[in-house]
């Protein structure tokens, strides 16, 4: 039986006087690739922060791997890439491999140092994202797209079962976005990692994701990608709050 990795049940959240999330229920099962889409300010990042345990829901429950998020300790089972990774201090004196190894901190455990084996794991993770040649470079010397690949390698190095990404393509050139998403597709298809991806790239990502959730304060649609594709643009525009026209990949020539 397929295990449920994320279970959100009737989640509600308010920031002072405004309701941000209303009755959100969403399940992500192992091996699934979910695209969470919605307009700016729709509550996507808030939902991710609640799932990660960075914010606490006012009502409802969130479970990770069957455990309540507050008591969930096996954090190494989750890899996380935030949109903020693009705005880190580029003058930080660290090599790419040092940054990737830091993804093993929790797994290695307190009072222990990284071993040669951990170094090898970091290089293997860099190989997956095709960045092994940059291992000894300073992280600040890389382009935005290369840095984001390094942060994905940091998320992957602990061999997570779930990868959560909050708009990871912010700051990446358009020409590299397609190659970035095809790498995610590979991670999901070949490595079997479940993915929950928050994105604005509704055309490209909904072609790659197995499931789509449309959020604007509440969930307006969630289900298989094939069902999402059957929806017409007028319905999507209605809950998006402005006109939306999806462009299919064959139209784009990708």
């Amino acid at each position: 039986m397929t295990k449920t990795i994320i279970e959100c049940n009737d989640v509600n959240f308010r920031y002072e006087h405004s309701t941000v999330l209303e009755n959100i229920s969403l399940d992500v099962k192992e091996g699934e690739f979910w695209a969470l889409i919605g307009p700016n300010g729709s509550g996507k990042s808030t939902l991710i922060n609640i799932i990660l345990g960075l914010l606490k829901a006012d009502q409802g429950t969130v479970k990770l791997f069957g455990q309540d998020v507050d008591s969930f300790k096996q954090r190494e089972r989750i890899g996380y890439v935030s949109q903020k990774s693009n705005s880190f201090n580029s003058g930080f004196p660290a090599t790419v491999v040092e940054v990737v190894k830091s993804g093993l901190t929790r797994k290695v455990g307190l009072f222990k140092s990284f071993s040669k084996h951990d170094e090898q794991k970091a290089l293997d993770a860099l190989r997956i994202v095709k960045m092994e040649d940059f291992a000894s470079k300073n992280i600040g010397e890389l382009s935005g797209g290369q840095q984001q690949r390094v942060f994905i390698a940091r998320a992957l190095v602990g061999e997570p079962e779930l990868l959560i990404m909050d708009e990871p393509t912010v700051g990446i050139d358009q020409k590299n976005v397609a190659s970035f998403y095809s790498m995610l597709n590979e991670l999901n298809g070949e490595h079997g990692i479940a993915i929950l991806l928050v994105t604005h790239e509704i055309d490209l990502v909904t072609e790659l994701a197995t499931h789509v959730a449309c959020l604007n304060r509440s969930i307006h649609f969630h289900g298989m990608q094939s069902e999402y594709k059957k929806m017409n643009d007028t319905d999507i525009s209605l809950w998006y709050g402005h006109p939306v026209r999806r462009v299919h990949q064959e139209q784009k020539g990708i």
Binding site: L52, G53, L54, K73, R75, E76, I78, Y80, S82, K84, S85, F88, F92, A94, E98, V99, K101, S102, G103, L104, T105, R106, V108, L110, F111, S113, F114, R154
Partner: peptide
């Protein structure tokens, strides 16, 4: 520094990621 080097590095480089990782 010997015992908390990797935690200190993770916290210094990316505080939010360190928190999500359970440090």
């Amino acid at each position: 520094i010997r015992f908390f080097y990797k935690e200190m590095f993770a916290l210094s480089f990316d505080k939010e990621y360190a928190k999500v990782s359970g440090i």
